[in-house]
């Protein structure tokens, strides 16, 4: 464990907290893409498929359960309690292409041809693009509540901090996972335009509006 990784994981927890807080306090899921949330549920179930069978540490065990449970809870809230506040007419990204593409990527790039390794690799590739329906939705509306924007920002920080973590582990631990690293860089690049607009607008106290 190093500070980059810990910071990344904490940013991830913060993003989940912000999202659930926004939905329950506003009693509304407006502006949040349920498609992105469904993709994250798929990501966590496939990534942590061995959560009960392979012990790494109490830290990873608890975090994995939090990520699986909170993503399902979010989807459940959006689909049931706050269904009427969703925007299905602007949440139109075709996620079957993201899922299909991730299956193909996992078939080509994996560490071993075993079920667990294939679903692990699938989850890594899917996570790298899972935010796209949310960013697409943001682009269609052209603006968003700052709380929604903070959620996406915290999620982006989580993945961005994993990059210096991999550099650190590569130098000091002789650890390098090319699949996680390449997919993580792709994911951070997807966020880069968003980060730029976030910095230009939100950091200067303005509303998040796409130029």
């Amino acid at each position: 464990m190093n500070l980059f990784r810990l910071g990344g994981d904490l940013a991830h927890l913060v993003s989940i907290f912000i999202l659930l807080q926004k939905i329950t306090a506003n009693k509304s899921a407006a502006g949040i893409s349920i498609k992105t949330q469904i993709l994250y549920s798929i990501v966590y179930v496939t990534r942590y498929i061995d959560v009960f069978t392979k012990w790494i540490s109490l830290y990873t065990f608890v975090m994995k359960l939090i990520f699986i449970a909170s993503s399902f809870y979010t989807v459940w809230l959006m689909h049931n309690t706050y269904k009427s506040t969703q925007n299905p007419q602007i949440d139109t990204f075709k996620i079957r292409y993201l899922i299909g593409g991730s299956i193909i990527m996992a078939a080509i790039f994996n560490h071993k041809l075993t079920f667990n390794e294939l679903v692990w690799s699938f989850s890594i590739w899917l996570e790298s693009v899972a935010i796209l329906p949310q960013l697409f939705m943001l682009q269609r509306t052209g603006e968003a509540e700052n709380i929604t924007v903070h959620y996406i920002f915290a999620l982006g920080i989580y993945r961005a901090l994993y990059i210096p973590n991999w550099v650190y582990r590569w130098i000091f631990d002789q650890y390098f996972d090319y699949i996680a690293t390449v997919a993580g860089i792709i994911q951070t690049l997807i966020y880069s335009d968003f980060f730029y607009v976030y910095y230009q607008r939100v950091m200067k106290g303005k509303k998040f509006e796409l130029p």
Binding site: D9, T60, N116
Partner: peptide, 10 residues
């Protein structure tokens, strides 16, 4: 190559 790969990150 190890029998099972250890994915210790989240």
């Amino acid at each position: 190559e190890p029998e099972t790969i250890q994915h210790d990150e989240l």
